[in-house]
Simulated assay, not measured.
Amino acid sequence: MRVLIVITAFIFMMPLRAQRSDFEAIDFWRADYMATQQQGEGLQQLPILVHHLTATLNTDVEKFRAIYYWVCHNIKGNYHLMRKNRNMIRKLENDPQALEAWNNTIQKEVFKTLLTSNETLCTGYAYLLKEMAALAGIESEIVHGTGIWNGNGSSSKDKSMHSWNAVKLNGKWYLCDATWSSGYIDMENLLFAFDYDDRFFLMEPEDFAKTHQPAQVKWELLPQEN
């Protein structure tokens, strides 16, 4: 484990320690059911959608679960958009100014595609989850960094820029990745296939760190040593 030298003020700014086991007593069947009841809904009336997902649920974690489950079962990854973005990032990685300009350009396309066809890439998943959580009164953040994933849970040398979320529940921060929970790209036909993976919903920080490297180390949510 890395040893970090931190000043006292920084220690108090670090997110509180949190684990998925905090919610072992909660059965998410009702939250998941509410999400299935809104299957196929679009994003044009987002406040109404969030209300339908969360109005009958009592706790923030259940409300967030309903939102997360809905996103993962209704938003597709767009292979062509992902490939286009990845290729440009690799091409411009040594030109920060050009890369920033590209990021501004691609974000417009990402959000347009998200709104018109319910398809996106990781940034769109993270943005949508944050917006829907906010409408439910739940604080969350978009976390940018590097993803290391080859589809079977083990690390790969092929790293790529990635975005996911941290969500604050009961005063603690938790990690989740709706992109990787939602499914995968079928490389035979280059189409997205829904295949929900529950592991990335409030995953334990130690396990999350095996495949996610945040740009800001505080979002590892791992215990820090002086």
Rank of each mutant, 00 (worst) to 15 (best):
T116C: 04
Q97F: 05
I148H: 11
R17E: 15
E93S: 05
T179K: 03
I67N: 07
K172F: 08
E220D: 08
Q107F: 11
L53F: 10
F111R: 05
N78G: 01
N94L: 01
K210M: 09
I148E: 08
Y174K: 06
H51P: 03
K172I: 08
Q224E: 12
K76L: 08
L129P: 00
D95F: 06
V167A: 03
T179G: 03
Q45N: 15
Y174Q: 05
N85Q: 14
L53Q: 12
K210E: 12
M82P: 02
P47T: 15
V3W: 06
I5K: 14
W173E: 08
M82K: 11
E139Y: 02
L169F: 07
A215D: 15
K108V: 14
L175F: 00
L169W: 08
P223A: 13
G151P: 02
K108T: 14
Q213A: 10
S181D: 06
C176Y: 01
E206Y: 01
K168T: 08
T179F: 00
R65A: 04
F208Y: 14
R199N: 11
Q38K: 13
I48C: 00
T146D: 06
G42T: 14
G151Q: 03
N103P: 00
C72G: 14
Q45M: 10
K130Y: 01
A98G: 06
Y127W: 11
E62V: 07
L53A: 07
E41W: 13
N58R: 13
L92A: 09
F28M: 14
T146E: 09
V143I: 15
H212R: 12
V143D: 00
I142F: 00
L128G: 05
E206M: 02
S156N: 09
W149P: 02
L121T: 05
T211R: 07
N58T: 13
S156K: 04
S140G: 03
T56L: 13
E119W: 00
G145P: 02
I75Q: 03
S117R: 14
I5V: 14
T105D: 09
S182D: 11
E62F: 06
D177E: 07
I148P: 00
I148W: 02
E206Q: 07
